[in-house]
Design a protein around this nucleic acid. Structure first.
Lengths: 242, 242
DNA sequence: AAGTGGTCTAGACCACCGA
DNA sequence: CGGTGGTCTAGACCACTTC
Protein backbone atom coordinates (compact mmCIF):
# COMPACT_ATOMS: atom_id res chain seq x y z
CA UNK A 1 0.00 0.00 0.00
CA UNK A 2 2.59 2.55 1.01
CA UNK A 3 5.65 0.92 -0.50
CA UNK A 4 8.65 2.89 -1.42
CA UNK A 5 8.04 4.36 -4.85
CA UNK A 6 10.73 6.97 -4.70
CA UNK A 7 12.66 7.59 -7.85
CA UNK A 8 16.31 8.34 -7.42
CA UNK A 9 16.42 11.35 -9.72
CA UNK A 10 17.51 14.77 -8.64
CA UNK A 11 13.96 15.79 -7.79
CA UNK A 12 13.81 17.00 -4.18
CA UNK A 13 12.58 14.34 -1.79
CA UNK A 14 9.64 16.39 -0.54
CA UNK A 15 8.39 16.95 -4.09
CA UNK A 16 8.61 13.23 -4.79
CA UNK A 17 6.55 12.53 -1.68
CA UNK A 18 4.01 15.14 -2.75
CA UNK A 19 3.64 13.40 -6.09
CA UNK A 20 3.25 9.99 -4.44
CA UNK A 21 0.45 11.28 -2.22
CA UNK A 22 -1.28 13.04 -5.12
CA UNK A 23 -1.07 9.89 -7.24
CA UNK A 24 -2.64 7.84 -4.46
CA UNK A 25 -5.53 10.27 -4.29
CA UNK A 26 -5.93 10.29 -8.07
CA UNK A 27 -5.95 6.50 -8.22
CA UNK A 28 -8.57 6.37 -5.48
CA UNK A 29 -6.31 4.57 -3.03
CA UNK A 30 -6.87 7.55 -0.76
CA UNK A 31 -10.36 8.98 -0.61
CA UNK A 32 -11.59 12.24 0.92
CA UNK A 33 -11.71 11.83 4.69
CA UNK A 34 -9.09 9.07 4.79
CA UNK A 35 -6.22 9.33 7.25
CA UNK A 36 -2.63 9.42 6.10
CA UNK A 37 -0.02 7.42 7.97
CA UNK A 38 1.51 9.49 10.78
CA UNK A 39 4.40 11.74 9.85
CA UNK A 40 6.94 9.63 11.74
CA UNK A 41 5.82 6.52 9.89
CA UNK A 42 6.05 8.19 6.48
CA UNK A 43 9.53 9.40 7.39
CA UNK A 44 10.63 5.87 8.17
CA UNK A 45 8.91 4.32 5.14
CA UNK A 46 10.45 6.69 2.65
CA UNK A 47 13.72 7.00 4.51
CA UNK A 48 13.58 10.73 4.97
CA UNK A 49 13.49 12.97 8.02
CA UNK A 50 10.22 14.08 9.57
CA UNK A 51 11.01 17.68 8.63
CA UNK A 52 11.03 16.67 4.97
CA UNK A 53 7.74 14.82 5.32
CA UNK A 54 6.28 17.90 6.97
CA UNK A 55 7.41 20.10 4.10
CA UNK A 56 5.59 17.89 1.60
CA UNK A 57 2.44 17.75 3.72
CA UNK A 58 2.51 21.49 4.46
CA UNK A 59 2.49 22.34 0.77
CA UNK A 60 -0.41 19.99 0.12
CA UNK A 61 -2.30 21.57 3.01
CA UNK A 62 -1.68 24.96 1.45
CA UNK A 63 -3.12 23.65 -1.80
CA UNK A 64 -6.23 22.37 0.00
CA UNK A 65 -5.41 18.76 -0.79
CA UNK A 66 -4.84 17.69 2.82
CA UNK A 67 -6.05 18.83 6.23
CA UNK A 68 -4.09 18.56 9.46
CA UNK A 69 -5.84 17.92 12.78
CA UNK A 70 -3.60 18.49 15.78
CA UNK A 71 -3.48 15.44 18.00
CA UNK A 72 -5.48 13.37 15.59
CA UNK A 73 -3.90 13.00 12.18
CA UNK A 74 -3.58 14.23 8.61
CA UNK A 75 -6.55 13.65 6.34
CA UNK A 76 -7.44 13.92 2.68
CA UNK A 77 -9.54 17.07 2.30
CA UNK A 78 -13.25 16.49 1.90
CA UNK A 79 -13.78 18.97 -0.88
CA UNK A 80 -10.42 19.16 -2.50
CA UNK A 81 -11.13 22.69 -3.61
CA UNK A 82 -13.94 24.64 -2.03
CA UNK A 83 -16.74 25.58 -4.35
CA UNK A 84 -15.79 29.23 -4.39
CA UNK A 85 -12.12 28.48 -4.98
CA UNK A 86 -12.64 26.62 -8.22
CA UNK A 87 -11.31 28.02 -11.44
CA UNK A 88 -14.11 27.92 -13.98
CA UNK A 89 -14.45 29.12 -17.52
CA UNK A 90 -17.30 31.48 -18.26
CA UNK A 91 -19.34 28.65 -19.76
CA UNK A 92 -18.84 26.40 -16.75
CA UNK A 93 -19.62 29.27 -14.38
CA UNK A 94 -22.89 30.06 -16.13
CA UNK A 95 -23.97 26.44 -16.33
CA UNK A 96 -23.47 26.04 -12.59
CA UNK A 97 -25.60 29.13 -12.02
CA UNK A 98 -28.34 27.61 -14.13
CA UNK A 99 -27.98 30.03 -17.02
CA UNK A 100 -27.28 29.41 -20.67
CA UNK A 101 -23.87 30.70 -21.72
CA UNK A 102 -23.35 32.46 -25.05
CA UNK A 103 -20.67 34.33 -26.91
CA UNK A 104 -20.18 37.04 -29.51
CA UNK A 105 -16.75 37.82 -30.93
CA UNK A 106 -15.90 41.52 -30.78
CA UNK A 107 -12.30 41.33 -31.80
CA UNK A 108 -9.73 38.71 -32.82
CA UNK A 109 -6.29 40.07 -33.52
CA UNK A 110 -2.67 39.10 -33.53
CA UNK A 111 -0.41 41.64 -31.93
CA UNK A 112 3.12 41.33 -33.24
CA UNK A 113 4.70 43.89 -30.98
CA UNK A 114 2.87 43.75 -27.69
CA UNK A 115 3.29 46.94 -25.74
CA UNK A 116 4.42 46.54 -22.18
CA UNK A 117 1.31 47.66 -20.40
CA UNK A 118 -0.99 45.34 -22.31
CA UNK A 119 0.32 42.20 -20.74
CA UNK A 120 3.51 42.81 -18.89
CA UNK A 121 3.88 39.22 -17.78
CA UNK A 122 3.61 37.89 -21.33
CA UNK A 123 5.45 40.53 -23.29
CA UNK A 124 8.66 38.53 -23.66
CA UNK A 125 6.77 35.63 -25.16
CA UNK A 126 6.43 36.98 -28.69
CA UNK A 127 3.21 37.52 -30.59
CA UNK A 128 -0.07 37.63 -28.76
CA UNK A 129 -3.54 36.55 -29.76
CA UNK A 130 -6.11 39.05 -28.56
CA UNK A 131 -9.59 37.66 -28.20
CA UNK A 132 -12.36 39.98 -27.09
CA UNK A 133 -15.76 38.42 -26.60
CA UNK A 134 -19.10 39.67 -25.38
CA UNK A 135 -20.41 37.01 -23.01
CA UNK A 136 -24.10 36.28 -22.73
CA UNK A 137 -26.16 34.61 -20.05
CA UNK A 138 -29.60 33.50 -21.18
CA UNK A 139 -29.05 35.60 -24.32
CA UNK A 140 -28.47 38.81 -22.35
CA UNK A 141 -25.07 40.52 -22.16
CA UNK A 142 -23.30 39.83 -18.88
CA UNK A 143 -19.60 40.42 -19.42
CA UNK A 144 -16.87 41.52 -21.77
CA UNK A 145 -13.91 39.18 -21.72
CA UNK A 146 -10.55 40.01 -23.26
CA UNK A 147 -8.04 37.17 -23.37
CA UNK A 148 -4.41 37.40 -24.36
CA UNK A 149 -2.50 34.24 -25.28
CA UNK A 150 1.12 33.65 -26.34
CA UNK A 151 0.42 32.44 -29.84
CA UNK A 152 3.69 30.60 -30.41
CA UNK A 153 2.76 28.17 -27.66
CA UNK A 154 -0.52 27.37 -29.41
CA UNK A 155 0.11 27.25 -33.16
CA UNK A 156 -3.05 27.38 -35.24
CA UNK A 157 -5.24 28.61 -32.43
CA UNK A 158 -5.87 31.87 -34.27
CA UNK A 159 -7.94 30.01 -36.84
CA UNK A 160 -10.44 28.65 -34.36
CA UNK A 161 -14.00 29.83 -34.21
CA UNK A 162 -14.46 30.91 -30.63
CA UNK A 163 -18.13 31.63 -31.12
CA UNK A 164 -19.20 28.14 -30.15
CA UNK A 165 -16.04 26.70 -28.63
CA UNK A 166 -14.66 26.99 -25.13
CA UNK A 167 -11.16 28.41 -24.98
CA UNK A 168 -10.20 26.25 -22.00
CA UNK A 169 -11.60 23.16 -23.72
CA UNK A 170 -9.39 23.79 -26.74
CA UNK A 171 -6.29 24.38 -24.62
CA UNK A 172 -6.88 21.30 -22.50
CA UNK A 173 -8.01 18.89 -25.22
CA UNK A 174 -5.99 19.89 -28.24
CA UNK A 175 -2.87 21.51 -26.88
CA UNK A 176 -2.56 19.17 -23.91
CA UNK A 177 -2.38 21.99 -21.41
CA UNK A 178 -3.26 21.30 -17.81
CA UNK A 179 -4.73 24.42 -16.34
CA UNK A 180 -3.85 24.46 -12.67
CA UNK A 181 -4.53 27.78 -11.07
CA UNK A 182 -5.20 31.44 -11.62
CA UNK A 183 -4.55 34.61 -9.72
CA UNK A 184 -7.31 37.17 -9.79
CA UNK A 185 -7.52 40.80 -8.90
CA UNK A 186 -11.04 42.06 -8.40
CA UNK A 187 -11.87 45.75 -8.59
CA UNK A 188 -15.04 47.74 -8.88
CA UNK A 189 -15.53 50.62 -11.25
CA UNK A 190 -17.88 52.39 -13.61
CA UNK A 191 -18.25 51.31 -17.24
CA UNK A 192 -16.76 53.28 -20.09
CA UNK A 193 -19.28 54.47 -22.71
CA UNK A 194 -18.24 51.62 -25.00
CA UNK A 195 -18.65 49.09 -22.20
CA UNK A 196 -22.06 50.31 -21.12
CA UNK A 197 -23.18 50.14 -24.75
CA UNK A 198 -21.96 46.57 -25.20
CA UNK A 199 -23.33 45.42 -21.86
CA UNK A 200 -26.56 47.35 -22.38
CA UNK A 201 -26.42 49.00 -19.00
CA UNK A 202 -26.87 52.53 -17.82
CA UNK A 203 -23.72 54.54 -17.19
CA UNK A 204 -24.61 54.60 -13.49
CA UNK A 205 -24.44 50.82 -13.09
CA UNK A 206 -21.16 49.78 -11.46
CA UNK A 207 -19.14 46.87 -12.83
CA UNK A 208 -16.68 44.28 -11.60
CA UNK A 209 -13.27 44.41 -13.22
CA UNK A 210 -11.45 41.08 -13.05
CA UNK A 211 -7.82 40.75 -14.03
CA UNK A 212 -6.73 37.15 -14.24
CA UNK A 213 -3.42 35.41 -14.82
CA UNK A 214 -3.76 31.72 -15.62
CA UNK A 215 -1.02 29.13 -15.01
CA UNK A 216 -0.42 25.62 -16.32
CA UNK A 217 1.19 22.64 -14.61
CA UNK A 218 4.67 24.11 -15.05
CA UNK A 219 3.67 27.40 -13.44
CA UNK A 220 3.93 28.97 -16.88
CA UNK A 221 1.54 31.76 -17.70
CA UNK A 222 -0.79 30.64 -20.47
CA UNK A 223 -3.34 33.42 -20.46
CA UNK A 224 -3.97 36.90 -19.22
CA UNK A 225 -7.58 37.96 -19.18
CA UNK A 226 -9.41 41.14 -18.36
CA UNK A 227 -13.14 40.85 -17.80
CA UNK A 228 -15.84 43.41 -17.12
CA UNK A 229 -18.98 42.04 -15.45
CA UNK A 230 -22.29 43.81 -15.00
CA UNK A 231 -22.63 44.60 -11.31
CA UNK A 232 -26.40 44.31 -11.37
CA UNK A 233 -26.42 40.72 -12.58
CA UNK A 234 -23.26 39.18 -11.19
CA UNK A 235 -21.73 38.41 -7.82
CA UNK A 236 -18.82 36.36 -6.55
CA UNK A 237 -19.02 33.69 -3.88
CA UNK A 238 -15.92 32.39 -2.22
CA UNK A 239 -14.73 30.48 0.80
CA UNK A 240 -11.59 31.36 2.70
CA UNK A 241 -9.72 29.66 5.50
CA UNK A 242 -7.72 30.88 8.45
CA UNK B 1 17.59 48.59 13.24
CA UNK B 2 17.08 44.88 13.66
CA UNK B 3 17.39 44.67 17.43
CA UNK B 4 15.88 41.86 19.34
CA UNK B 5 12.24 42.70 20.01
CA UNK B 6 11.12 39.22 20.91
CA UNK B 7 8.61 38.91 23.69
CA UNK B 8 9.01 35.95 25.97
CA UNK B 9 5.39 34.84 25.96
CA UNK B 10 4.25 31.45 24.80
CA UNK B 11 3.75 32.66 21.26
CA UNK B 12 5.75 30.48 18.85
CA UNK B 13 9.07 31.99 17.85
CA UNK B 14 8.31 31.94 14.13
CA UNK B 15 5.05 33.82 14.68
CA UNK B 16 6.86 36.44 16.72
CA UNK B 17 9.38 36.89 13.90
CA UNK B 18 6.55 37.19 11.38
CA UNK B 19 5.02 39.95 13.47
CA UNK B 20 8.34 41.76 13.77
CA UNK B 21 8.80 41.72 9.99
CA UNK B 22 5.23 42.87 9.35
CA UNK B 23 5.60 45.67 11.87
CA UNK B 24 8.78 46.85 10.14
CA UNK B 25 6.93 46.98 6.84
CA UNK B 26 4.01 48.81 8.43
CA UNK B 27 6.27 51.40 10.01
CA UNK B 28 8.03 51.93 6.70
CA UNK B 29 11.37 50.70 7.96
CA UNK B 30 11.13 48.12 5.20
CA UNK B 31 9.82 49.26 1.84
CA UNK B 32 8.78 47.24 -1.21
CA UNK B 33 11.91 46.04 -2.96
CA UNK B 34 14.10 46.20 0.15
CA UNK B 35 16.29 43.23 1.04
CA UNK B 36 15.87 41.43 4.33
CA UNK B 37 18.95 40.38 6.27
CA UNK B 38 20.06 36.88 5.22
CA UNK B 39 18.39 33.98 6.97
CA UNK B 40 21.52 33.01 8.86
CA UNK B 41 21.88 36.52 10.19
CA UNK B 42 18.26 36.70 11.34
CA UNK B 43 18.73 33.36 13.07
CA UNK B 44 21.70 34.69 14.99
CA UNK B 45 20.08 38.04 15.79
CA UNK B 46 16.93 36.55 17.22
CA UNK B 47 18.66 33.54 18.67
CA UNK B 48 16.67 30.94 16.81
CA UNK B 49 17.60 28.25 14.32
CA UNK B 50 17.61 28.91 10.61
CA UNK B 51 14.77 26.42 10.18
CA UNK B 52 12.58 28.59 12.39
CA UNK B 53 13.52 31.71 10.47
CA UNK B 54 12.64 29.91 7.26
CA UNK B 55 9.24 28.92 8.61
CA UNK B 56 8.43 32.55 9.34
CA UNK B 57 9.66 33.72 5.95
CA UNK B 58 7.92 30.88 4.11
CA UNK B 59 4.55 31.84 5.53
CA UNK B 60 5.08 35.47 4.59
CA UNK B 61 6.04 34.38 1.07
CA UNK B 62 2.83 32.37 0.92
CA UNK B 63 0.95 35.49 1.94
CA UNK B 64 2.70 37.49 -0.80
CA UNK B 65 4.40 39.77 1.69
CA UNK B 66 7.92 38.64 0.82
CA UNK B 67 9.63 37.23 -2.26
CA UNK B 68 12.57 34.85 -2.22
CA UNK B 69 15.27 35.00 -4.91
CA UNK B 70 17.55 32.02 -4.91
CA UNK B 71 21.16 33.04 -4.62
CA UNK B 72 20.29 36.68 -4.13
CA UNK B 73 18.15 37.34 -1.09
CA UNK B 74 14.69 37.78 0.38
CA UNK B 75 12.82 40.96 -0.56
CA UNK B 76 9.69 42.82 0.42
CA UNK B 77 7.11 42.15 -2.31
CA UNK B 78 6.61 44.92 -4.84
CA UNK B 79 2.92 44.44 -5.42
CA UNK B 80 1.25 43.84 -2.14
CA UNK B 81 -1.22 41.08 -2.80
CA UNK B 82 -3.53 40.81 0.16
CA UNK B 83 -6.90 39.25 0.88
CA UNK B 84 -5.71 36.19 -0.92
CA UNK B 85 -5.57 32.74 0.47
CA UNK B 86 -6.19 33.41 4.12
CA UNK B 87 -9.08 34.66 6.17
CA UNK B 88 -7.94 37.84 7.82
CA UNK B 89 -9.46 40.44 10.08
CA UNK B 90 -9.51 44.00 8.88
CA UNK B 91 -6.50 44.83 11.05
CA UNK B 92 -4.47 41.91 9.73
CA UNK B 93 -5.50 42.71 6.17
CA UNK B 94 -4.35 46.30 6.49
CA UNK B 95 -1.06 45.36 8.13
CA UNK B 96 -0.24 43.01 5.28
CA UNK B 97 -0.97 45.81 2.85
CA UNK B 98 1.45 48.00 4.72
CA UNK B 99 -1.21 50.38 6.03
CA UNK B 100 -2.07 51.33 9.57
CA UNK B 101 -5.49 50.02 10.63
CA UNK B 102 -7.87 52.13 12.69
CA UNK B 103 -11.40 52.02 13.99
CA UNK B 104 -14.28 54.25 15.02
CA UNK B 105 -17.37 52.82 16.67
CA UNK B 106 -20.59 53.93 14.99
CA UNK B 107 -22.97 51.70 16.85
CA UNK B 108 -22.88 49.09 19.59
CA UNK B 109 -26.23 47.56 20.42
CA UNK B 110 -27.78 44.46 21.81
CA UNK B 111 -30.76 43.25 19.87
CA UNK B 112 -33.01 41.16 22.07
CA UNK B 113 -35.44 40.10 19.41
CA UNK B 114 -33.53 39.75 16.19
CA UNK B 115 -35.75 39.97 13.18
CA UNK B 116 -35.39 37.19 10.70
CA UNK B 117 -33.87 39.09 7.84
CA UNK B 118 -31.12 40.67 9.92
CA UNK B 119 -29.22 37.48 10.40
CA UNK B 120 -31.27 34.52 9.40
CA UNK B 121 -28.58 32.02 10.28
CA UNK B 122 -28.17 33.39 13.79
CA UNK B 123 -31.73 34.18 14.76
CA UNK B 124 -32.26 31.05 16.82
CA UNK B 125 -29.29 31.84 18.98
CA UNK B 126 -30.89 34.46 21.17
CA UNK B 127 -29.65 37.99 21.65
CA UNK B 128 -27.29 39.56 19.18
CA UNK B 129 -24.51 42.08 19.59
CA UNK B 130 -24.49 44.54 16.74
CA UNK B 131 -21.18 46.25 16.21
CA UNK B 132 -20.90 48.83 13.49
CA UNK B 133 -17.46 50.31 12.97
CA UNK B 134 -15.97 52.75 10.54
CA UNK B 135 -12.66 51.26 9.50
CA UNK B 136 -9.67 53.43 8.74
CA UNK B 137 -6.50 52.77 6.77
CA UNK B 138 -3.74 55.26 7.42
CA UNK B 139 -6.34 57.43 9.19
CA UNK B 140 -8.63 57.63 6.14
CA UNK B 141 -12.03 55.91 5.99
CA UNK B 142 -11.92 52.71 3.98
CA UNK B 143 -14.86 50.58 5.04
CA UNK B 144 -17.97 50.27 7.16
CA UNK B 145 -18.11 46.96 8.95
CA UNK B 146 -21.22 45.67 10.67
CA UNK B 147 -20.71 42.54 12.75
CA UNK B 148 -23.41 40.47 14.41
CA UNK B 149 -22.46 38.05 17.15
CA UNK B 150 -24.52 35.64 19.28
CA UNK B 151 -23.96 37.28 22.64
CA UNK B 152 -24.75 34.29 24.83
CA UNK B 153 -21.75 32.48 23.41
CA UNK B 154 -19.47 35.34 24.38
CA UNK B 155 -20.58 36.62 27.80
CA UNK B 156 -19.16 40.00 28.66
CA UNK B 157 -18.06 40.81 25.12
CA UNK B 158 -20.52 43.72 24.99
CA UNK B 159 -18.39 45.58 27.53
CA UNK B 160 -15.25 45.53 25.43
CA UNK B 161 -13.85 48.63 23.85
CA UNK B 162 -13.58 47.73 20.19
CA UNK B 163 -11.92 51.01 19.35
CA UNK B 164 -8.43 49.64 19.85
CA UNK B 165 -9.01 45.92 20.02
CA UNK B 166 -9.33 43.37 17.29
CA UNK B 167 -12.57 41.41 17.40
CA UNK B 168 -10.92 38.25 16.14
CA UNK B 169 -8.10 38.64 18.63
CA UNK B 170 -10.60 38.79 21.49
CA UNK B 171 -12.53 35.79 20.24
CA UNK B 172 -9.40 33.72 19.75
CA UNK B 173 -7.46 34.74 22.84
CA UNK B 174 -10.14 35.22 25.46
CA UNK B 175 -13.02 33.03 24.39
CA UNK B 176 -10.82 30.27 23.03
CA UNK B 177 -12.57 30.26 19.69
CA UNK B 178 -10.74 28.86 16.71
CA UNK B 179 -11.84 30.70 13.62
CA UNK B 180 -11.64 28.26 10.76
CA UNK B 181 -13.34 29.53 7.66
CA UNK B 182 -15.72 32.07 6.22
CA UNK B 183 -18.05 32.18 3.29
CA UNK B 184 -18.20 35.43 1.40
CA UNK B 185 -20.49 36.88 -1.16
CA UNK B 186 -19.05 39.84 -3.01
CA UNK B 187 -21.24 42.34 -4.83
CA UNK B 188 -20.74 45.77 -6.26
CA UNK B 189 -23.07 48.67 -5.73
CA UNK B 190 -23.42 52.37 -5.14
CA UNK B 191 -23.22 53.87 -1.65
CA UNK B 192 -26.26 55.10 0.19
CA UNK B 193 -26.11 58.77 1.21
CA UNK B 194 -25.21 57.74 4.76
CA UNK B 195 -22.47 55.44 3.51
CA UNK B 196 -20.92 58.00 1.19
CA UNK B 197 -20.92 60.48 4.07
CA UNK B 198 -19.17 58.07 6.44
CA UNK B 199 -16.68 56.90 3.83
CA UNK B 200 -16.13 60.43 2.58
CA UNK B 201 -16.69 59.51 -1.03
CA UNK B 202 -18.72 60.99 -3.81
CA UNK B 203 -22.07 59.37 -4.54
CA UNK B 204 -20.69 58.28 -7.92
CA UNK B 205 -17.94 56.13 -6.41
CA UNK B 206 -18.91 52.44 -6.50
CA UNK B 207 -18.39 50.22 -3.48
CA UNK B 208 -17.79 46.57 -2.68
CA UNK B 209 -20.45 44.92 -0.57
CA UNK B 210 -19.13 41.90 1.29
CA UNK B 211 -21.47 39.58 3.16
CA UNK B 212 -19.54 37.16 5.33
CA UNK B 213 -20.49 34.20 7.50
CA UNK B 214 -17.72 33.07 9.83
CA UNK B 215 -17.39 29.56 11.28
CA UNK B 216 -15.43 28.07 14.18
CA UNK B 217 -13.87 24.62 14.55
CA UNK B 218 -17.26 23.01 15.16
CA UNK B 219 -18.73 24.53 12.03
CA UNK B 220 -20.80 26.78 14.25
CA UNK B 221 -21.51 30.25 12.99
CA UNK B 222 -19.81 32.77 15.23
CA UNK B 223 -20.27 35.95 13.24
CA UNK B 224 -22.18 37.43 10.38
CA UNK B 225 -20.70 40.55 8.91
CA UNK B 226 -21.68 43.01 6.25
CA UNK B 227 -18.96 45.31 5.01
CA UNK B 228 -18.95 48.19 2.58
CA UNK B 229 -15.55 49.00 1.08
CA UNK B 230 -14.60 52.05 -0.92
CA UNK B 231 -14.12 50.90 -4.49
CA UNK B 232 -11.50 53.55 -5.20
CA UNK B 233 -9.15 52.39 -2.47
CA UNK B 234 -9.75 48.69 -2.16
CA UNK B 235 -9.38 45.58 -4.27
CA UNK B 236 -9.44 41.86 -3.70
CA UNK B 237 -6.77 39.44 -4.80
CA UNK B 238 -7.36 35.75 -4.74
CA UNK B 239 -6.03 32.49 -6.05
CA UNK B 240 -8.25 29.79 -7.46
CA UNK B 241 -7.56 26.23 -8.53
CA UNK B 242 -8.92 23.98 -11.24
C1' DA C 1 -1.50 7.14 28.83
C1' DA C 2 -0.47 6.69 24.13
C1' DG C 3 -0.23 8.66 19.80
C1' DT C 4 -0.73 12.54 16.91
C1' DG C 5 0.75 17.00 14.89
C1' DG C 6 3.36 21.66 16.43
C1' DT C 7 7.59 23.82 17.46
C1' DC C 8 12.53 23.98 17.60
C1' DT C 9 17.63 22.98 17.38
C1' DA C 10 22.53 22.78 15.32
C1' DG C 11 24.41 21.42 12.17
C1' DA C 12 25.41 19.82 6.73
C1' DC C 13 25.77 20.07 1.75
C1' DC C 14 23.83 21.68 -2.79
C1' DA C 15 22.30 25.21 -6.38
C1' DC C 16 22.18 29.68 -7.88
C1' DC C 17 23.61 34.64 -8.30
C1' DG C 18 26.59 38.42 -8.66
C1' DA C 19 31.03 40.77 -8.53
C1' DC D 1 34.74 33.15 -5.78
C1' DG D 2 31.78 34.24 -1.53
C1' DG D 3 27.19 34.80 -0.10
C1' DT D 4 22.56 33.72 -0.74
C1' DG D 5 18.47 30.65 -0.55
C1' DG D 6 17.13 25.30 -1.18
C1' DT D 7 17.16 20.82 0.67
C1' DC D 8 17.90 17.59 4.35
C1' DT D 9 19.11 15.14 8.81
C1' DA D 10 18.38 13.07 13.67
C1' DG D 11 17.07 14.12 17.23
C1' DA D 12 14.07 16.83 21.35
C1' DC D 13 10.11 18.52 23.87
C1' DC D 14 5.31 20.57 23.85
C1' DA D 15 0.13 20.66 22.94
C1' DC D 16 -3.69 18.38 21.62
C1' DT D 17 -6.93 14.39 20.77
C1' DT D 18 -8.44 10.05 21.82
C1' DC D 19 -9.02 6.25 24.74
Amino acid sequence: MWRNEMSSKKIPLYKQLKQIIIKKIERGELKPGDVLPPERELAELFEMSRVTVRQAISELVNEYVLVRRHGSGTYVAENKIPHGKKLKSFSEDMSLRGMMPGSKICEKNIITNPSANMAAELRSEGNLLILKRLRLADLEPLAIETSMLPINRFPGIEDRDFQNESLYQILEDEYNIKIIKAQQKIEVGMPTPQESELLQINYTTPVFRLRQVTFDQNDTIIEIAHSVYRGDRYNIETEIYR
